[in-house]
Design a protein around this nucleic acid. Structure first.
Lengths: 183, 183
DNA sequence: ACGAATTAGTTAGCACACTAACTAAAACGC
DNA sequence: GCGTTTTAGTTAGTGTGCTAACTAATTCGT
C-alpha cells in the first residue's frame, strides 16, 4: 500500500484519545469506589448531597441530582433506591411541592463520605499527577471548553430533558437509508 | 469562615472537568449512534473489525476485541451476541485455536460501517471543533499522557488482564530503558 | 376558577458493564 | 506422556444507564 496517513486529522486523533482515556478512567475508578462498597455513580450522589449540606441545604430533589450527575429521572430513582436500601441516604417529602422529594445523607452516609474524602485527594493526584501543574490547568481549560460546547450543542440533560418535544428538528431526519434496525 | 478557596487544587479541578466532559460526551454520542440502530459500544466493535479488514485480517478474536475496547470477556460475549443477532457480525471458529472464535463483519455490517463513516468526520468536528488545531493537538497529547499513566498504574484490561507474564519475554532486546509505550 | 399543559417521580423493559464461577482447549512442567 | 496451569469463551446474577409510558401534583391560559 501507499503512504496512507492514518491519523492526519488532529480532531479525530484527539477524539480517539479522549475515548480511550475515558475508558481507562472508568476502569480505574470503579474498583476504587468498590472498596467502599459503592459505585462511582453512587459516589456522585453522596458527594452532591454533602456539598448541599455544606451550603446549608438539608436535601436535594431527585430532579436536581439528575441535572448535576447528567443522568435522567429513571436512573436517579433506581440510584436512590439502592442508596436508601443500604442506608446511606433517605427520601423525605418536600414541604413546598407535594410531588417532589428531598434526598439527604443519613448519618451512615455522612460518615462514609468523610471516610472516602480522606483518601480522595491522593487518588486524584494518583491520576492527574502525571501532568505538571500548568498542564493540569490546561487540561482543565480544554475540558471545560469542550464541555461547554457539548452543553450548548446538545441540551442533553442539564436544562431539562423532557422539553425537547419540538417536532421541527432541523437536523437530519432519521436517515433510514439502507437498513432500519430497531423499530 | 475565612476565605476558603474551594478549588485551589488544579488536579481536582481538572479531574472534575474530565468527569463532566465524559458525561456530556456520552450523552452526545449515544443518540448519534442510536440513529443507526446501534450503540456506541457496538460501533466500537464494528470499527475495530473494519480496521482489521483494512489490515488484511479476516476477523478478530473476542479477546482481542476486549483489549481494544477496554471491556472484559463477558461484556464482549453479550456485545457480539447482539451484533450477531441483528446480522452485523458473524462468529466463526478459529482454525488454529479450537477454543477461540473469529468475529468478522457481515456484508450488512460492512455496509453500515461505510454509511456511518460518511458522517463521522463531521460529527467529530462538531465536538472537537470548539478547539483550534493546536489546542486539539494539545488535548490529544494530554489525554494520551493520562491514558498512558492509567495504563501502567492499573493493568486494567489493555495489556491483557490474564497473562501477566513473567520476565522471560523473548523480545526483551529492545530499548526498554525509558518510556515504552505500547507493545 | 377550571381544564390543559407541564413537571416530579416511578414503573416496565432493554442494553451494557462488571465479578464469580464454569467448560473446554492449549501450553507448561516434569 | 500426563497432570497442572493458563487461556478463550460463556453463563448467572447484579448495578447503572436509557426510552416509553404512567400517576400525581402544580402551573398556565383563558
Amino acid at each position: 500500500m501507499s503512504p496512507k496517513p492514518k491519523s492526519s486529522d488532529p480532531a479525530e486523533a484527539a477524539f480517539r484519545a479522549f475515548v480511550r482515556a475515558s475508558g481507562l478512567f472508568r476502569n480505574r475508578m470503579d474498583p476504587y469506589f468498590a472498596r467502599y462498597g459503592i459505585s462511582a455513580s453512587q459516589w456522585g450522589v453522596l458527594r452532591a448531597l454533602q456539598r448541599a449540606e455544606n451550603e446549608g441545604l438539608d436535601g436535594l430533589q431527585l430532579s436536581v441530582l439528575g441535572q448535576r450527575l447528567l443522568v435522567r429521572p429513571p436512573s436517579v430513582t433506581t440510584l436512590i433506591d439502592r442508596l436508601e436500601r443500604i442506608g446511606l441516604v433517605s427520601r423525605r417529602p418536600d414541604r413546598e411541592d407535594q410531588r417532589a422529594k428531598q434526598v439527604a445523607l443519613t448519618p451512615a452516609g455522612r460518615e462514609l463520605v468523610a471516610r472516602v474524602l480522606v483518601k480522595h485527594p491522593a487518588e486524584i493526584r494518583g491520576i492527574m499527577g502525571c501532568l505538571s501543574e500548568p498542564e493540569q490547568r490546561e487540561f482543565q481549560r480544554l475540558m471545560e471548553r469542550v464541555a461547554a460546547h457539548l452543553e450548548t450543542s446538545i441540551d442533553s440533560i442539564s436544562p431539562d430533558p423532557r422539553n425537547l418535544r419540538d417536532p421541527r428538528d432541523p437536523r437530519e431526519r432519521r436517515s433510514a437509508a439502507a437498513g432500519d434496525r430497531r423499530p
